[in-house]
Structures are given as structure tokens and as C-alpha cells.
Design a binder for these strands. Sequence first.
DNA 1: TACTCACATACTCTTTGCCT
DNA 2: AGGCAAAGAGTATGTGAGTA
Length: 243
Amino acid sequence: MLKHTFCHIPGVGTKTEKRLWNSGILDWNSPLGSFKLRKKAEGTFQSTIEESRRSFELRDPGYFGSTLPPKESWRLFSDFRDDVAYIDIETNGYVGPHGYITAISLYDGKRVRYYIKGENLDDFKEDIFDYKLLVTYNGKCFDIPFIESHMGIKLPHAHIDLRYTLRDLGFKGGLKGCEKLIGIDRGELKGVDGYFAVLLWRDYRRNKNPKALETLLAYNIQDVVNLEPLMIKAHNLKLMLTP
DNA sequence: TACTCACATACTCTTTGCCT
DNA sequence: AGGCAAAGAGTATGTGAGTA
């Protein structure tokens, strides 16, 4: 899909991109011919295409991540699927100086890794750089800034925030709501939500209850594993809607 | 060249929704 | 509750096409 993308070029929006496609200019190798671009796009078109080719060859989604309109970030998925990390965090429920991360789950489509405060949380700082593309739900507003400010790292990865892609497709109501609409079942963890995860952590810390931590992790892992079918569904629906 | 029209993009401000 | 990106609404600006 990326090689057919033009809307990351300054001065080209999704409407102009559609006109390009309709004129038979379908990918980065198609000659522009007599297609009339607006001035701004005229000046940057060729250099942007060249940079796009380079970044594609180098398998660097970062360039596209920073230039694609967020609504269109789903286009990164199929070309960079091997470099994807689905991530989700749980916290102690506080924001600000008293807030901290209790658990992080990371799933790459094959294996799940999880990180727990007081055990191996810092390993995440290294492991996350095994990947180039992050997929989250509402991570742009919550998970990523929280990780960056509380772990003291910068995550320069390209990023697909499914919240906006799914919403654009008409799926609203939070992560659980979207799962329900798409038909993903949570099994016995149906009643667990973010706030319950906070309580589980307190139970684990205060009462040294290992069952509480176990449930917390199971919930966190389920969140992150469910992101994959959501991503695939969103990607395929978007693709169907693209001429 | 001068003008108008339609449309796309760009900009600004406000609102919305989501996370734990 | 706190934080914040993106959507949405509204407006401004710029472009290209058409016409005379």
C-alpha cells in the first residue's frame, strides 16, 4: 500500500491523491505526465518520492510515520508487519509524580513478553528497540507519553494508534467496545478493565497476593494480543475502501 | 489580463474521547 | 481527575479552470 501512497507529500491531501490514482498515476514509478499539481506540491513532489523510495529500501517506517496524516498511518502495517510491536501498559492509577507503570505487555505476532515493576520493567527499554513500528489503542495520548516520561526514554518509532483508525471506520466505544463490535471474545476476563487492574496491583502489593498479579498480567496480555486482530481487521477494511 | 467559481489546503480554536 | 492528540467547525488563503 505504501508504494501507492502520495498523501504524505506536502501539498497533497487524500483528495489530490485520489485524483492521481484516477489519472493512472498509481505508484511512485508512474510518470506524472501532464498532471497538474498545486505549487507547493510541485516543488516537493519528486524529492519526496525519492526520499520515500530510499526509506522504503532501508525499511525505515519512521519517515512515513512522521509524514503520513495520522488517519492514514494504517498503510504502514502490511509493509512493516515483521517489525511490529503491539504494546499496552497498566499503571497504579495515579497521574503525575505518584503515578508509575505496574506492567507492560509487548506482543510481536509470535511471542508475548511482559514486564513487571520491581522485577524486569527496565528490560523493556532495550527490547522495544527490536521493533520499528508500534501499534496501540489510544497510545498517542496515554501509553507512549506515560512510558516516555516515567521511564526516561524516547520512543521514536512509527506508530499506528488504532483508536483513530477504528473510529474512522465507525467503531467507537473504547478498546473493549471495538472488540465487541468486531466479535472478539474476552472469555473469563470479561469483567476486568483498567480500573480493576489498578485494584489488582494494590491487592498484589499489600497482601502479596500472587493470584492478583497473575490476573493483572492475564488482562494486560489479552489487551495486547487482541490488538493484532483489530489491526488486521482495520487494515483490511481500510484497504477495501481504497480504490 | 482580469475576473469569477469551485475546490483543496492551511490555519485557528473548541470539543471530544480515551486511558489507568 | 489529568492530560492530550485528533477531530470537527469555521474561516482564510491559494490554485486551476473557464470565460471573455
